[in-house]
Design a protein around this nucleic acid. Structure first.
Lengths: 354, 354
DNA sequence: CCCGTTCTTGGAAACGTTTCCATACCTTAT
DNA sequence: ATAAGGTATGGAAACGTTTCCAAGAACGGG
């Protein structure tokens, strides 16, 4: 062992100074490597004097343990994977924001991947999760039709939590989109609407399908038939909503009310309304999902269905941490539901007499 | 070495199957460990037959290299740190979205930390960057007054790129906020406004201070004095903007135009206008920074200053990758500027005769 | 035909931790 | 007094790769 005794000093001229290792600390403090490790990890059976000596050396050398070495030996990476389709969707980023705070507090770091709904990115990330031996995985709403991906996930054998998404064998946190869909549809039916358009997200996403279920239930309760033509799952943003709604509004028996996603899509709907010369709430009633600045500050204000995104991220993170620690709760895989809340503004009215 | 020859099979009953290691692959293929490593890393000097044999074994055993071991030995973690104050701000999340895509393509994974402008979180993340031996660091707009943090950063000796932020010795990508501020202030002065309120973000953030500089320059060009009372740096969201603007509008010589941030703050401004019984553009002209749905779809539409967020993230990511690879560009630390664009809508008018 | 290259492969030493085991020293109960 | 147990420390063997070095095979030029 021809290790330089002097510690972490630069050898050459332009070479960066070598970082201190645990052996350097041990040497500097005149103790064994294992004692340093014990002190660093706060294990019991260490005398106060030893502790002090070692910490002094640690500070002097600015020692910082190499986490790859720790991960290699201890089989814990202190890393959580986070998979989301689209980070630029503020609904997701707000949830992630909440989750990250909780994880940070527990000493974990988030590894983020945006998949853009592409299956190869999804499977690629699962592979990254395996190679990096991440300790857990947060799955934000994504397409369950991707069977390669869900298959890879099933073989993963890792603590996971799904957010607004259903993955078999994985606990999940969900907003009560079904109840919310029920509530707002009931509200519109109660106003007298019989033709209510539903512009929701991609059909394969759980929030959309749940919303649709609530919508159907409200119709069933009122003994109303559902016109499938009024249900428009959207794959893209506002531009698609725009043409879709234009077409819808031009039809002979046009909808008298529209339920739409609040992010991106609402904008397209408003444009379509304007370009068709129609106004809300007089000509068409409007309810949007997800409370956004646009919904709040449009004139008149647009009634919205909302729920606590930050909280949702936090709850998910804490369930995941529980599972990682193998807590008693670890068996529960029943979904946790968060309530939605309907904010009544001025975008709804009794439909005009035909 | 009493390693089980059979490969990665479970030993006990409920224990998870051990993952195959490179030695297992080597044994299965009847070759040396170093050959497996070479093939896995696509190094030259490997015969086709060897390659085939090894890949067969890799697939059979579902071998996936342990990235901690790779990182430990090769001193590359293939990991990029990403520090942002507030992930729920859509301006940031959109930039991160763009950056992540570029990094993903290059085989890197993003490690995300939200600091909420708290210095201890910032320094904690710098520590994480060191311990995890991350390969690079993306710094999104943050407070330069945090000297502990900037000090820690200076000692880091790691490829960094700052986005809309100034860090000494670090290359940066910035939107031309100064030019943008100049352009919109000139526009308002050109309309005849003499009292223009500027509601920008925290003064310590680069975009805000640059904007202010542009604002001042436009005033200087027109030989107008700047009333410091009209400059309101904001630390929080819409609620503060609301009360601030209310107070401003109530003053005897109220501003005839307002420049405001488009996210969060614009909403507060609109509320304040409404509650003061004033309307835009007749009573007050409005320009907002950052084109949001609200700006686009408010009636009348609100003129906005915008720039390409996704692009900005990508540019930053690519500069960082360049630096990591030690490219020729590595010396350049002059900031790269992205242009802003002024979208003229209907929120500006000639001020009314007093 | 031999010698210097270049190509292909194997062996073994790192990389920086944690953790198991052993040891030496104290207690304390029998 | 001695066995039994706990506490504080050190030594060394992992963890799973990459990479350096050496050595044999193939190759081409003189």
């Amino acid at each position: 062992m021809n290790r330089v005794q002097e510690g972490p000093v630069a050898k050459g001229r332009r070479t960066r100074p070598a970082r201190a290792t645990i052996r350097d600390v041990a040497a500097q403090a005149g103790v064994s490597v294992s004692s340093v490790s014990r002190v660093m990890n706060g294990e019991p059976h260490t005398s106060p004097e030893l502790h002090a000596r070692i910490m002094r050396a640690v500070n002097r050398l600015r020692f910082e343990p190499h986490s790859a070495a720790q991960a290699l030996r201890s089989r814990e990476s202190k890393t959580i994977g986070c998979m989301v389709a689209d980070l630029s969707n503020p609904l997701y980023s707000e949830m992630i924001n909440g989750a990250e705070e909780e994880l940070q507090r527990a000493g974990y770091v988030l590894m983020l991947a945006a998949t853009r709904h592409e299956e190869d990115r999804e499977t690629a990330f699962v592979s990254a999760v395996r190679r990096r031996r991440m300790d857990g995985l947060l799955l934000f709403a994504g397409d369950n039709a991707h069977t390669d991906f869900t298959g890879a996930l099933a073989n993963l054998d890792l603590p996971c939590v799904a957010i607004d998404r259903e993955v078999s064998g994985v606990p999940s946190v969900r907003a009560d989109h079904r109840g919310g869909g029920l509530e707002i549809t009931r509200y519109l039916i109660g106003l007298g609407h019989r033709r209510i358009a539903l512009l929701t997200g991609r059909a394969a996403l759980l929030p959309s399908s749940e919303r649709l279920a609530g919508y159907r239930q409200a119709h069933a309760e009122a003994k109303l038939a559902v016109d499938p033509d009024l249900i428009r799952p959207q794959t893209q943003g506002s531009s698609i909503a725009f043409s879709d709604v234009c077409q819808l509004l031009r039809s002979p028996n046009r909808p008298t009310a529209i339920i739409t996603l609040g992010t991106h899509m609402l904008a397209g709907v408003m444009d379509a309304l304007a370009s068709s010369g129609l106004r809300y709430p007089d000509d068409v009633s409007l309810v949007c999902i997800g409370d956004t600045d646009l919904a709040r500050h449009a004139t008149p204000g647009i009634s919205a269905l909302t729920w606590d995104l930050d909280q949702m991220g936090r709850v998910a993170a804490n369930i995941l941490l529980d599972r990682i620690r193998g807590g008693d709760e670890a068996k529960k895989i029943r979904p946790v539901y968060l309530p939605t809340r309907f904010i009544l503004r001025h975008s709804g009215a009794t439909p005009r007499a035909p």
